[in-house]
Design a binder for these strands. Structure first.
Length: 700
DNA sequence: CAGTGAGCGAGCTTCCGCTTGACTT
């Protein structure tokens, strides 16, 4: 009897990963991707039996039946299956569900679980040698997480439908993100800026002039509250001698930063490149899936959804080899090691270039501008992370002038270290010079420079800072940071104004309601405590059912109470306007609908007239239409502005009309921004040259 | 950089976390 040839089906989550692994393993293996979860709760109902131990009702995810079937067929053919979804809680559940589906079709198939935390030939081969079993405690922890989130979301959302507006949503994660944004907004609003002044003095020694800042006067605290205070002080300093009292030199070593996690990448891309989290992830996905270089399609970066700064030994050796060739004097003897956050699930490496030889310059011809910029910061951050520190020297000079103490300082880099490799990520250097000074030197007074300031209140959240805050509090995961921001924007809970996230009236109303009624759930500690309990379940020390039950009973009671007693604020947020309904003469109100704000007759339901909000008059000669905001059909594309007389009038623009008309030609103005002029107002008329700098205007 | 292109809303919704393409019931 001939020996049957062993063939193995290996299942991972991502198709790009599948391709790479197939290459590493060679014949004898087929590698397929599940594309995430295949089995989940149905969307249309709670699907958790709260009467019977919270038993979840699982179905095949819409659109995934085909993939599941393919996996079952391939498993049958191979006879041998290795489940290799990510080595974390969600990955364990994915494997578990696939295993059940395969065994249901054919109980004879040999199914095992393997794990690896990096995609290198060695790591994969080792993992394949050590097949194990699915961890049921881990699966249970995921089940608890899933059921809890479903219960919270599907109980809180209907409260909002009943009390505020249909179609709204709330959940463990999004509602806390909204709360953070609302609380910050309250701080911004209550902040009262205070005036203060600073005083600098321009001094000279020999030919060199330099600035020193007032740091102290007499014994007390330095307080310059008004221009009068500064004037009084300047008078007191009239004619005094400026004498060098102390010269201090300090040296500082600056260590490179670790390679990127998802949250760090989003933060840095936001701050350095002005990308939203969503844009960063879209472009990172393109770099990960592969770019045509010559005739080869090459995945340029490792997986982009990770919470770890860990890198593989292979990658470490490669970057050290690269560095000893390119920067031989900047390679540390011992490789730099970065500790991984204790909250991290560590299923993937840090985000790094797959091949360090593909420098930003080398790949530039094959990438578009945004891809190139994002790749550059990933490459720079990774390479720099394995280089020696930079050395800085700061010289600080104290200058006595009567009772006043001024200080001049400057910093120079004495050793560039890892900074030698940074271009897009390079720190902005401020050129400052000091003459060589020693104690006792008498300096020549040139002039005082006074400046008015106001204390700055707390800053509103941006994509970068909300992601940072969420990660620090352990809320959300690398795969959800960008979607969290999107959901708040899509539901009009929050709007983006110059990159800042500002809550709308709707967002605040919802937050007030939720925080008042469910302070313990809409709380950063709720997730932290949940994670602790999930860890206990994972370690086999806790029952998932009792954990969920403990939460559910009081929660459901509160939900019922709120549904019964809370007053509805439906319609309260509708704004009155001066627009008059042309059908019945009643006033119209501004309401929020599925696609944004619109005008509706206040006589509803007697009069059901609705229309878009007119933003400007149509500038086409002879057209009496209004310019209104429109969106593309279903794709929820970018908002544009067109004429109400469409298709008779096909005027269109992507610039949002401003309130004011052009003083030159009467068309409407829009806000534009470019590198030369910055943000400015311009006329939409292509034949009109009206330009107006926004800074000159009354508003910023 | 240039040039871009549609629905009318009043309801049946919603969660979080995995992953990429894409049609209707």
């Amino acid at each position: 009897m001939a020996e049957k040839k062993v063939h193995t089906l290996l299942i991972v989550e991502s198709p790009a990963k599948a391709k790479t692994i197939e290459k590493y393993l060679g014949p004898g293996f087929t590698v397929k991707a599940s594309m995430g979860h295949l089995i989940d709760l149905p969307k249309s109902r709670l699907a958790v039996d709260v009467e019977h131990d919270f038993e979840p009702e699982y179905i095949t995810v819409r659109g995934k039946a085909k993939i599941l079937k393919e996996l079952q067929v391939a498993a049958n053919k191979a006879g041998n299956v290795l489940l290799a979804s990510d080595n974390d809680r969600e990955g364990e559940a994915i494997s578990y569900h696939i295993q059940n589906a395969i065994l249901k079709k054919n109980p004879q198939i040999q199914v095992k679980r393997i794990v690896f935390n990096e995609i290198t030939p060695q790591a994969i081969r080792e993992a394949v040698q050590k097949p194990g079993d699915i961890s049921i405690p881990k699966v249970n922890a995921q089940k608890a997480r899933r059921v809890l989130d479903r219960i919270v979301g599907y109980n809180l959302s209907p409260i909002l439908w009943q009390k505020v507006k249909n179609g709204l949503s709330a959940g463990r994660v999004q509602s806390v993100a909204l709360r953070l944004i609302c609380e910050r907004e309250a701080e911004v609003e209550s902040f009262v800026p205070e005036e203060y002044w600073t005083l600098d003095v321009e001094l000279s020694k020999g030919k060199t002039q330099f600035l020193a800042s007032l740091v102290k006067y007499g014994e007390g605290k330095l307080e310059l509250k008004s221009s009068q205070d500064v004037e009084d002080l300047e008078k007191k300093l009239h004619g005094v001698a400026f004498i060098v009292k102390e010269v201090k030199e300090t040296e500082k070593s600056i260590r490179p930063r670790p390679p990127f996690t998802t949250s760090q990448l989003q933060q840095t891309a936001a701050n350095r490149l002005g990308f939203t989290s969503k844009k960063t992830m879209q472009i990172a996905q393109q770099l990960y899936e592969g770019v045509n270089i010559g005739s080869n399609r090459i995945g340029l970066i490792t997986y982009m959804r990770t919470d770890s700064t860990r890198i593989s030994q292979t990658a470490l050796q490669e970057v050290r080899a690269y560095l000893s060739k390119e920067y031989p004097d900047k390679v540390p003897e011992v490789p730099n090691y970065y500790s991984v956050s204790k909250d991290a699930q560590d299923a993937h490496e840090a985000i790094r270039p797959t091949m360090v030889e593909y420098t930003p310059d080398y790949v530039k011809p094959y990438l578009n501008k945004d891809q190139h910029r994002l790749y550059s910061i990933i490459w720079e951050r990774f390479v720099a992370s394995q280089m020696v520190p930079a050395q800085q020297k700061t010289i600080s000079v104290d200058i006595q002038a009567g009772e006043a103490l001024f200080r001049a300082s400057y910093t120079i880099t004495t050793e560039k270290g890892f900074q030698a490799v940074l271009h897009l990520l390079a720190a902005k250097e401020t050129e400052k010079k000091l003459p060589s000074l020693k104690v006792g030197d008498v300096l020549t007074f040139v002039r005082f420079i006074r400046e008015q300031h106001f204390t700055q209140g707390p800053a509103r959240y941006t994509d970068a800072t909300i992601v940072k805050a969420l990660e620090e509090k352990g809320i959300g995961r690398p795969s959800t940071y960008a979607p969290i921001i999107s959901v708040l924007l899509d539901r009009y809970y929050v709007v983006r104004k110059n990159r800042q996230l500002v809550p709308t009236a709707l967002g605040r109303a919802i937050n007030d309601l939720l925080v008042k009624s469910f302070p313990d759930v809409i709380d950063v500690n709720f997730t932290a405590e949940m994670e602790t309990k999930l860890d206990r379940i994972e370690e086999n020390g806790g029952e998932w059912v009792s954990m969920v039950r403990e939460f559910y009973l009081p929660f459901r009671k509160k939900v019922d109470h709120v549904l019964e007693t809370m007053e509805s604020i439906k319609g309260v947020l509708d704004e009155e306007t001066d627009y008059v309904c042309e059908l019945c003469g009643r006033k119209m109100v501004k309401k929020l609908g599925r696609y944004g704000y619109f005008l509706a007759c206040s006589g509803f339901p007697a009069c059901t007239n609705t229309k878009s909000i007119p933003l400007a008059d149509c500038p086409r000669p002879g057209c009496n239409g209004k310019i209104v905001a429109r969106k593309k059909a279903k794709g929820r594309g970018k908002e544009f502005y067109g004429c109400t007389n469409y298709p008779a009038c096909d005027f269109i623009t992507y610039y949002k009309p401003l309130e004011t008309k052009c003083p030159k030609c009467g068309w409407f103005l829009v806000e534009k921004s470019d590198k030369k002029l910055g943000t400015h107002k311009a006329c939409i008329n292509p034949d009109c040259d009206y330009l107006h700098s926004a800074e000159e205007g009354e508003e910023s």
